[in-house]
Design a protein around this nucleic acid. Structure first.
Lengths: 345, 345
DNA sequence: TTGAAAGCGCTACCAC
DNA sequence: GTGGTAGCGCTTTCAA
């Protein structure tokens, strides 16, 4: 079934009440109705309330398409993320919603699933005027958006660094965070520490991996460095990488994971292999997911202020879209190491 | 800062390429461009390709607002859910996306957070024409949408039953599912079974609670029935209810939870109280969240086909919006009891 | 096969 | 303070 055909099927819904209808009922001109609805001072309170009453009674709501066409903005902010089912993202979205709704915008969420076509299709929303700005949590921006006039004033990045100095971004200091985590294990006496890393094409995961490597080297443990990369990021992938490692005979005393989901899977795999956590092997995760505090054993991790990141990103976007002001600066939010049972510390 | 002021700040972005520009460059009329873009047979292939080439070169994209105004549809489907951070929902959204994107629609997600105002504000999207249809996962529909002409052809429900026979819905048989879970525990010899339930204002949670009660009664264990209701649904709330129960001296041999998140929190609390799972106390959850299979001990649960529910719901909505066809029937999807370590069975 | 022209519903400018 | 009106960018009927 083609898209075209699809759209042509009758979506009958009768004629809606228009501003003209209101005008007729109120015995005024449409322009007056328009002004009244915009709460313009150039309409008497008397007329205003008369019009408002009719609006109430008829259940009239303004036509979004017409307003959009006329005013040239949509009031929508698009949030682009790799996969809405990753526990990390929804919490950020909540923060974004909180902020933009305060300011009269609504949020559209789109999952790209790392698919170029989907990315481009979603990015179109900006070009078509269906969205006024885009918040990227994908770490990349499609070439297409660069054709948009002064595109850098309509987009921001959150969580995953976009390799472009001109785009305002919100992030934590992933390097510092991983350094802290590694140092913590080092301080506990661990020497044989493996890093279960995420895809190295992601600046975020790369920064974490680099921090691990350098911190190990600085501690004189350069030869012990062992980064196991998982292209896929999931609970399952964490388990699989762990199993492969164990089968290869590698027996670290501690594992730092690229994220809590990976850690969850890896810990499960370790247990199935008869290892006891943290006695035989310690774990540290990243993100502080809701389950991390209550799993068995509970997971030490780096807490990331997801909600705040969302709010900050939204604030940045709206500020960025305001061409009367300077382009806002990027923001680095604080993280925190949460020590729990999984690393015995 | 008021919304009005907010919107008025300069969002300068220069003039965009319009269809007129394309027409001028191709030396044809706009109507021809319009036809060419719609791939109408009433344009020569020669003209068509000439126009298409210019479209490519200029990076022209059609103006969404104008098309919307003219064709009276937005191509957007709104998904309304209580909270996007509940692990249950995003997976359903993925299924919805899969289906509607095939058919030329895009998805807008809105979290209501059980706030009436937010519900109404989002529902407006339908009335203003910003969305063509709404998928409700909230279990209720705001009064406002009922003012929309033949509103029942523009909405469907997923997961949480909407108390209206006229709205097509997708769900699992919650009653049957809970009966199965309870019977399983009964079959394992448990008699002292507590149900850690969700808010009884939700038909879903009510159906589950009722099934538990009846199944217990049918087994001659009517006096053992013990439903502990948690108004809030979360990992934390599960832990709190469990603690309260334990402190009250109630010591069941098994607990059936309203969902896996509740179970996760409850199991954590049980462990902290020195109980061993499943030896001292067995658990069964509901939903089969990603973490359920790998937690320690792994959680027995009712598997719900979330992705499929999303797809089915989307299919239902598009079918429902097609006024040339009959209103589609509601759908009941199969669930499955997954037995893992937590109930020792 | 193509062009001309009439609006879709709204806002903003210009009169009065 | 209110009315008239042009036109946002597009689709679609009607003519040529």
């Amino acid at each position: 079934m083609s898209v075209e055909n699809d759209k042509k099927t009758k979506r009958g819904s009768g004629r809606r009440t228009t501003m003209h209808d209101i005008a007729r009922l109120a015995e005024v001109d449409v322009s007056t109705v328009s002004r009244a609805l915009a709460d313009s001072p150039r309409v008497t309170d008397e007329t205003k309330s008369r019009i408002l009453k009719i609006v109430q009674d008829t259940g009239y709501v303004i036509n979004h398409g017409a307003r959009m066409l006329r005013q040239r903005y949509s009031g929508q902010v698009l949030v682009m993320l790799p996969n809405i089912a990753f526990t990390y993202f929804p919490e950020v979205v909540l923060g974004i919603e909180d902020y933009v709704q305060e300011h009269g915008f609504s949020v559209v969420v789109g999952s790209t699933r790392y698919d170029r076509e989907r990315e481009e299709a979603l990015a179109q929303q900006l070009l078509t005027g269906a969205a006024d700005g885009i918040i990227f949590m994908t770490g990349t921006i499609p070439e297409l958006v660069k054709t948009f006039p002064s595109f850098d004033r309509h987009i921001v990045g959150i969580s995953r660094a976009i390799p472009d100095e001109h785009i305002p971004q919100v992030n934590i200091d992933n390097y510092l965070a991983m350094e802290t985590a590694t140092r913590h294990l080092l301080g506990l006496g661990h020497q044989s520490i493996v890093h279960l890393a995420g895809s190295q094409s992601s600046p975020t995961f790369r920064a974490r991996a680099e921090a691990y490597e350098r911190t190990m080297e600085d501690a004189g443990l350069g030869e012990k460095v062992n980064v196991i990369v998982s292209e896929e990021y999931s609970i399952q992938a964490g388990g699989e990488r762990m199993n492969e490692m164990l089968e290869a005979g590698v027996r670290p005393t501690a594992v730092i994971c690229a994220g809590d989901d990976m850690a969850l899977g890896a810990m499960h795999a370790a247990r199935l292999s008869g290892l006891e956590i943290p006695r035989d092997i310690a774990f540290i995760g990243f993100d502080d997911q809701p389950f991390s505090a209550v799993m068995n054993p509970s997971l030490s991790t780096i807490q990331i202020p997801r909600r705040e990141m969302g709010m900050a990103g939204a604030r940045l976007l709206l500020a960025n879209m305001d061409m009367t002001k300077d382009k806002p600066d990027s923001i680095l939010l604080p993280h925190k190491l949460i020590v729990r049972e999984s690393c015995g510390g």
